[in-house]
């Protein structure tokens, strides 16, 4: 059981439309700080859409319209006056497919700190890169070839590099959109262990298709179906004692 450490994010009545189609229906959910919260549900259930609300990545899609309220530490992030660029420095994101930039390993990690002016000297920059790669559990494998192309790394290494890149700007929240779906089981295990480690410092929201993964890494779970939040609670409760029939059908493998 995760110990209570306070509410980090309060989402209230969040709806998302893509053009005429409503992808998310009035979802309200509180996210606890320094906890891993898993979003599960069948494809097209709106879990990724919901995740993209927390760093306003839906702004990138021209037809998307988001309504409702999301408060991060009490500050409204859907405020039109808020600069999504600053928000995204606080709320980092790791994507489904590893997407390292076609630059060197070092340049990839240093990218965020540079654009946000977090480092002032070459020395600091090197420290941040080393520290981030260590936190992402990649340092041992790449310390002697920081200036090789990042695209030459294996898929699992690339994904850990993307995690290092995200935590290099020292965010408070980390969004992970099916971070292991493109990886083999061994790389998946490494990333899952890493998530448990990162949880000590960051509030983590993870979308996953794998219920075993949700059970292994998360303390809280939210089950989505057809754009609605069906049920949420501690992971132990959801998996051992689901209250909703749909949730039970999904986690027992009858639908999905």
């Amino acid at each position: 059981m995760a110990k209570k450490t306070g509410i980090k994010i309060k989402a209230a009545d969040v709806s998302v439309h893509y053009g005429d189609k409503q992808a998310l229906h009035n979802v309200s959910l509180d996210i606890e700080a320094k906890t891993v919260t898993a979003f599960i549900g069948p494809s097209g259930c709106g879990k990724s859409t919901f995740l993209r609300c927390f760093n306003r990545m839906n702004d990138v899609i021209p037809s998307a319209k988001v309504s409702g309220s999301i408060q991060l530490d009490g500050a409204e992030i859907n405020d039109a006056a808020l600069d999504p660029v600053l928000l995204r420095a606080k709320v980092g994101m790791v994507f489904q497919k590893p997407n390292p930039f076609p630059k060197t390993i070092f340049e990839n990690v240093a990218y965020g700190p540079r654009i946000h002016g977090l480092v002032t000297s070459r020395r600091e920059e090197q420290d941040v890169v080393e520290d981030s790669l260590k936190k992402a559990g990649l340092w041992g494998e790449v310390s002697d070839r920081l200036h090789d192309q990042a695209t030459a790394l294996s898929g699992g290494q690339q994904q850990r590099l993307c995690i290092a890149r995200a935590i290099a700007v020292n965010p408070e929240v980390l969004l992970m959109d099916e971070p292991c779906s493109a990886l083999d089981p061994i790389a998946t295990t490494i990333i899952e262990e890493l998530i448990s480690e990162l949880q000590k410092k960051f509030t983590i929201l993870i979308v996953t298709h794998s219920m075993q993964q949700a059970a292994r890494v998360s303390q809280k779970t939210a089950y989505f179906h057809l754009g609605e939040l069906v049920e949420h609670g501690t992971t132990v409760d959801i998996f051992s004692n689901p209250k909703n029939d749909q949730t039970e059908a999904y986690i027992s493998g009858k639908i999905g």
Partner: peptide
């Protein structure tokens, strides 16, 4: 250029 690279850059807070 793949959209995933754009998402990656924007997700890190690039303009």
């Amino acid at each position: 250029v793949p959209q995933s690279l754009r998402d990656g850059a924007l997700g890190l807070g690039s303009t």
